[in-house]
Design a protein around this nucleic acid. Structure first.
Lengths: 164, 164
DNA sequence: AGGAAATTGAAATTCATTTTCAATTTCCAG
DNA sequence: CTGGAAATTGAAAATGAATTTCAATTTCCT
């Protein structure tokens, strides 16, 4: 089991940021889009965060330093990142569109605490295999999947007395 | 593997409808709510459909026969069914709230065709066990989970030439 | 039957997401 | 280096699904 929780080490992050920014630049060029100061700032902040952010959350964070960057541009840049394959769009139980940095082909699933809201990511090879087997039984070709566990994380499991 | 696709046999459905309606009645009484003509019609139509409907879809269906029943009432009745445990609320990739009839404690997952939109349900004991094991490793207590496979169903896999 | 409490449904509201549009910026061709 | 076509920006408006409001109506307990 490969853990990739939000609390995990952030080493190599500056290297990853540079790499990702290069990828975005290539994507922009290929599509005839332009590189701008705003996009650069937004992408940098987004990749630094390494969280599942909504457009509004990222905008608020950016707005503290860069008053002149508008919500719409943050929103559009996140969409652009999703198109270019550098971010994944995900909707959890709160029904807000969230974005997370995505490198290469990795796919991970989520443990979401309904008490504190923490999101822990994990990858599990057994799970991947089982999913493929199930799909095969139905003649189904999986392009993408979504798996979320909602419940109580280790910390909240102890403190929440409301467990039924 | 237990199949429960939308195309599966609908035998016993009238029996199930009566049963479910009794359950709703009990729920209403317990809560001090009232039984109404509208609720009866909406619940009947909902249970008959045995699909993952949005409030609007169900409203449109009902509106053909019963012009006097408003959207709001359909919406509220679906919420009520969800509260009473007779329906499950689910949001798929199109980001619309859908409701499906829910009997007892069953939980099933979904194969969603991105080409024709069909939703097939399945249950898999191995999957349930693996999910619990994974959660245990993280000290996580699962209350609920969501698993969806997006891809091409048997039928569309053949006809869609756009598979990369 | 009487009336308190719940329900109904049309309309209004909310709120995240998306689009519009005029002003500005980017960047390629010359 | 420019000039200017094309893309971008950001404020504001629009969209659209979900939810709430409220006056009129219905339910159902006593």
């Amino acid at each position: 089991m490969k853990l990739r929780s939000s609390e995990a080490s952030a080493s190599n992050s500056s290297q990853n940021i540079i790499e990702s920014k290069e990828k975005l630049k290539a994507f922009l060029k290929k599509k005839g889009f332009k590189s701008t100061r705003q996009r650069d700032i937004i992408v940098t902040e987004f990749l630094k965060s390494r969280e599942h952010v909504t457009a509004e959350e990222l905008y608020n964070r950016i707005n503290k330093k860069y008053k002149e960057i508008g919500f719409t541009t943050v929103y559009r840049t996140l969409k652009l990142l999703a198109e270019s394959g550098l971010a994944a769009e995900q909707i959890f139980a709160d029904n807000l569109m969230r974005y997370e940095p995505l490198s290469e082909e990795e796919h991970h699933d989520h443990l979401i605490c309904v008490h504190c809201g923490s999101i822990t990511e994990f990858e599990n090879p057994k799970m991947e295999r089982l999913q493929k087997n199930i799909a095969n039984e139905f003649g189904f070709y999986i392009v993408n999947h979504k798996m979320e566990f909602y419940g109580y994380c280790r910390r909240c499991r102890g403190s929440a007395r409301t467990l039924s």
